[in-house]
Simulated scan of single mutants.
Amino acid sequence: MKKILIVFGTRPEAIKMAPVVKEFKKCEQDFETKVCVTAQHREMLDQVLSFFNICPDFDLNLMKPNQNLYSLTGDIINGMKPVLEEFKPDIVLVHGDTTTSSAAALAAFYSGAKVGHVEAGLRTYNKLAPFPEELNRQLTGRIADYHFAPTSKSQNNLLQEKTDASSIMVTGNTVIDALIESVEIVNKVHDNDDINRLKELIDPKKKLIVVTGHRRENHGQGFLNICDALNTIAKTEHVQVIYPVHLNPNVQKPVYSILGDNPNIHLIDPLPYEAFIWLMDKAYLIVTDSGGVQEEAPSLGKPVLVMRDTTERPEAVEAGTVILVGTDKNKIADEAMNLIENTERYNKMSQLHNPYGDGKASQRIVDFLLKN
């Protein structure tokens, strides 16, 4: 029986690893599976754990006020040491591009465990965009023994980096597994306070634009431009903007100062995962700098404007389900207004195929590790 340790620390990781945890737990005869959370994010992480009914076996509880990348990286490596010594996993599974992923992978390597990288092979090849995620992902990729690439393009990136082809499996993205399960759960919920508040907020006569934004590289002038663009879009009478604002002060300060008085823009607290899924499903258009939303929204038939200059998810751009607009306020506003007014273009974009999978990625990861 192989011992599997699944490690994550942020809300996006938790969402994408939840279906992986559940799939491994189904195979108790083949795997002893334990979950370790670093709690790089605390409150938002706990919401996802509760929604998917996951109880961690190890909780490092590392989140601190004003934490920085230096201390967080060291705390994760040091925090992982006793966990690895106690459980002695054969394989440690990490996800994506967070500080948790790269630091936990390095700790696992030090312990002698093999490392499996879920959502492997995404690249911009610009180590400052996204920062620090691009380099986190590349570091994790160099450490990993098994690479679970969501697409063939991700696989090709790994092959070009001389990664052993036999160690790579194209799986699709586990976020689609999570989304399919989540939509089913949310549609059965009839008494959720967060969803009920959203129902009261939404004007059904208006086209709803949902906004998220938090990327470090957009802090400063980037967020000022984004806010100016949203003000322009929200001047349109038949448009409503709902923006769950990230807790980072570098986001909160410009957003509330520039957008706080616009009656067509509703600034709200970050939403629990299930409420955000519900809100995305009701949206007409989504404007975001999030990687996960680029993958999720097309499965819901929602066009996406991505407020980044580069993306490690070019498949969506090539498929036409997302449009890169950067932080150019004119481009954000122009593309949004075009999709609001041009019904034919909107319908074509909303009906395009999602390149990120069929909801069976987690099953493919389990099947791969059963054979390796």
Rank of each mutant, 00 (worst) to 15 (best):
F8M: 01
E13A: 02
K16G: 13
Q29S: 15
R42K: 15
D46E: 05
D46H: 00
Q47L: 09
V48I: 13
F51D: 02
F52Q: 11
F52I: 11
C55L: 14
L62E: 07
M63Y: 05
Y70M: 14
I76R: 02
K81W: 14
K88A: 14
A107N: 15
A108W: 04
Y110T: 12
H117N: 09
H117F: 06
A120W: 10
G121R: 00
R123N: 04
R123A: 02
P130H: 07
Q138L: 12
I143Q: 09
S152N: 15
K162Y: 08
T163V: 15
M169A: 14
V170I: 12
T174K: 05
S182F: 02
S182L: 01
D193A: 13
I195N: 05
I195V: 10
L198T: 06
D203V: 09
T212A: 07
H219P: 09
N231E: 14
Q240I: 13
P254D: 06
Y256E: 10
L267F: 03
P272E: 13
A275Y: 01
M280D: 03
Y284V: 14
G292K: 01
T311M: 07
V317S: 07
A319V: 13
N330K: 14
I332A: 00
D334G: 03
N338F: 10
Y346W: 09
K348Q: 15
S350Y: 00
N372R: 11
